[in-house]
Amino acid sequence: MTDYSSQIDRETSRLAALAGDLSVPVPTCPGWTLAELVTHVGQTHRWAAHVLRDRVQERIWSKQVAGGLPEGASGDADWLRAGAAELLDTLRATDPATQVWTWGPDRRASWWPRRMLFELVVHRADAELALGIEPEIDAATAADGIEEYLHNLPYAAWVTRPLAELGVEGATIHLHATDADGEWTITQGPAGKITWERGHAKGDVAVRGPVADLLLVLYGRRSPDTAEVFGDRDLLDRWLATTAF
């Protein structure tokens, strides 16, 4: 079983180390500075801890959970670390089989650590890109991140609604990692929902490159130009513009 708690701890430390000048703009999160990014991540940790600790069964928004900041204030590195510590303590004290609310398909506590890890990985990459640092993501982690993204995407209503308007039902997108054992084919289904499967296949469009770049392309943090693209580039651009979050 993947030790997501240890990875969350490491990723939090990496992000906190970047949280010096919080006024730096974050181009991959338009309108945000590092202050907004750190506050978002720290609030998300506290939200997840609340859901797990209180065995929440109905949807609750992160802004409904107390973050321990004065009205209008932003978090900093210490506040980020404190929220992660609270989350990790809660994760370790919670049976993974516990029934809780999630926005994904799995209504168990085990859904949350994987989701929180990739919330951190992607936003740590945001911070690095803002500071002119090339993000480094371990290949195994990036491959797991692609599958976590695809696993949850059909349940992200804010994505599936606009996807349904694209008129690309039946279209296929193939991802091919060049530095890891990973290939995935995404098929656009009805009502904006997707299905996916592992393995080699021919898609309407294919993206081939390092697995970390593929993960960041899916999240809209990298242009597909950082990889090789074969086939219907217009389909890819429109699909990525709709699914990035």
Rank of each mutant, 00 (worst) to 15 (best):
L15Q: 05
D76Y: 08
H176Y: 13
P162V: 11
T98W: 04
V159R: 15
T243Y: 01
Y149V: 13
D21Y: 03
A73N: 06
A143V: 14
A171K: 14
Y155H: 15
W111G: 00
V56E: 07
V217R: 00
Y155S: 10
P30M: 03
G20A: 11
L131T: 02
E36H: 15
T2N: 12
V121F: 01
W32M: 11
V26S: 07
A143R: 09
I133E: 07
G231L: 03
A212Q: 03
W101T: 05
S5R: 06
A227V: 12
L88G: 05
L166T: 14
A180H: 14
G189F: 00
W239P: 12
A139G: 01
E134L: 11
S223F: 08
L131Y: 02
H50S: 09
W101N: 06
P70H: 08
W112T: 01
G231D: 06
G42H: 02
A171I: 09
Q99Y: 00
D237Q: 12
S5H: 11
R238W: 06
T160I: 05
A130F: 02
V56C: 03
T172M: 07
I137W: 00
A49M: 07
D225G: 12
E71M: 04
L120F: 07
A241H: 12
D237S: 12
L15I: 04
R55Y: 05
V121I: 11
P224H: 02
D213C: 02
D144H: 10
Q43R: 14
K202Q: 13
I60R: 08
D179Y: 03
G72L: 04
R198M: 05
L129K: 09
G145R: 01
L120Y: 09
V211G: 05
T90V: 10
E36D: 15
A109G: 05
G42N: 07
V205C: 09
W184S: 05
E165G: 10
A142I: 01
E128L: 04
L131D: 02
M116T: 05
P224D: 03
T90F: 08
A180D: 12
T226N: 05
Q57L: 13
L22Q: 08
M116H: 10
T2Q: 13
E183P: 10
K63S: 15
G83H: 07
A171L: 09
L69H: 03
I173E: 01
A164S: 15
D204Q: 03
W111F: 13
P27F: 05
I133N: 06
T242G: 07
A156Q: 12
R233S: 09
P25H: 04
S23T: 15
R59T: 06
D179S: 06
T178C: 06
L215N: 02
R55H: 14
A191N: 14
A48H: 06
H45P: 00
R233W: 00
T44Y: 13
G67K: 07
H176Q: 15
F230E: 15
A35Q: 08
H200F: 08
G199W: 01
Y155Q: 10
I173Y: 03
T141L: 13
G182P: 00
T195W: 01
D78R: 08
D9E: 15
L52P: 14
P135N: 08
R221I: 03
T102I: 11
P162I: 09
S62Y: 15
L69C: 05
I133H: 12
V100F: 06
R198P: 03
E58N: 07
